[in-house]
Nucleic acid binder design. Structure first.
Lengths: 225, 225
DNA sequence: CGGGCCCGTCAAGAACGCGTCAAGAGCCAT
DNA sequence: ATGGCTCTTGACGCGTTCTTGACGGGCCCG
């Protein structure tokens, strides 16, 4: 069963969507403001989020940014405005789809199905990753190096997760950047260098000669189990 | 059917191109400014973009940057200026080809076909190439000689890839140079000699008597599996 | 036999990419 | 407000890679 988080401050629209989604076999949770929405993303782990921009407490793009900081769940943005700026900005920030009000319920349902299909394996949690030196439990956000618990920051987790989804395979810089920082971060920057460094210091037995987090110069990084 | 996005603020030129492209069996969508163009790239997923620099709303390079942030679609840049600076900058930002106005429609059509063809099979990864002596995995950027991992530099990979796309066939010097160093490197230079040398040292059992990376004097090189 | 052409080889300087560090901004909880 | 944590961004040094010029040898042709 697909779990959908509906974020909207208009109770009528919220009701309409809830009923329509339930009628099509979805589970629905709701939030009326941005902070609650982010919290719900973390706690309820929805399969897809329908997000109305223009919430009472936070700017729409800010909500989106925070959701993206917390999860890679597919987000469908609703907006009354027709400005293409908004749309581009939203897509830049990592929205997966964009629907302008007014819209037909059928259309939205179709987009929900599409988003879930696309996001299918991104949303799923990775099983624990085990090497001879450390253990990573993504579901629990727990890292253990030589039996000792190690703290990783949210961004560090996301970089690791993107790498561990393709164990032993090259992940290109561009793909890595987009997976972690969103679609608009296609260009090179310090990000990867800094975080590869941090992660190696925290995880590698000998950070200067990495065995698990390997650089492929000019291309990207590779995680070796 | 090839879908072409034409970005130009001159309605006459837009019409001309649209008609010509449709007459040759392409589907055409248009945009008259940069923001619309980026939006169209996201929504319409064109197979190739024809982009006029000098749009009303955004700097040409900025449009290109945004398109590149959103997609790897091939982009052909149009420009009235003859400045080579522009050209270099555009190619740096990821344009695939560059046409200076005025230009013939036939020429542009040819470039569209070329861009689509390149975009089609350059994007596609080569399967692993296996010989009795070494294995090349282009997707993973992994080379193994007699079971031992061997490091190849980015340029070495590009040269190899260009050769391996035509296994057993002659690849002319000019084509090889262009494939690796870009369209403006049509002239002879040391490049190929140096890199053929490097590759033979790294891959051939007897570098002095190459069996796989063969020179065709006066013409080019051939890769024998 | 001599000369030209083309290729292979080598080496050195420039350019590039990466790792590293640190300062500053932003956010959160106290 | 204050302090701690994280993210972002710029700067710098170092090792690697690219580029370029020079030189020598084989081959063909006159």
């Amino acid at each position: 069963m697909t779990r959908v988080l509906v974020v909207d401050d208009d109770p009528r629209l919220q009701r309409t969507l809830t009923i329509a989604l339930r009628a099509h076999g979805n589970e629905v949770v709701t939030a009326a403001d941005g902070r609650t929405a982010v919290q719900s993303v973390l706690e309820d782990a929805p399969d897809v989020v329908i997000l109305d921009l223009g919430l009472p407490d936070l700017d729409g793009t800010e909500v989106l940014r925070r959701i993206r900081a917390a999860s890679v769940v597919p987000v469908i943005v609703l907006s009354a405005r027709h400005e293409s700026d908004d749309k581009i900005e939203a897509l830049d920030l990592g929205a997966d789809d964009y629907v302008t009000k007014p819209f037909g319920v059928e259309e939205l349902l179709a987009r929900v199905r599409a988003a879930v299909r696309r996001g299918g394996d991104l949303g799923r949690h990775l099983g624990p990753v085990v090497t001879d030196h450390f253990v990573l439990d993504f579901a629990e956000r727990r890292a253990t190096v030589e039996g000792e618990d190690v703290r990783l920051t949210p961004t560090e987790w996301r970089v690791l997760e993107a790498l561990c989804r393709e164990p032993g395979h090259l992940v290109q810089q561009q793909d890595l950047l987009r997976a972690v920082w969103g679609p608009s971060y296609g260009r090179e920057s310090n990000y990867l260098r800094v975080y590869a460094n941090q992660l190696r210091r925290k995880l590698e037995p000998d950070p200067a000669n990495p065995r698990h987090l390997v650089t492929e110069p000019g291309l990207g990084y590779r995680f070796n189990p």
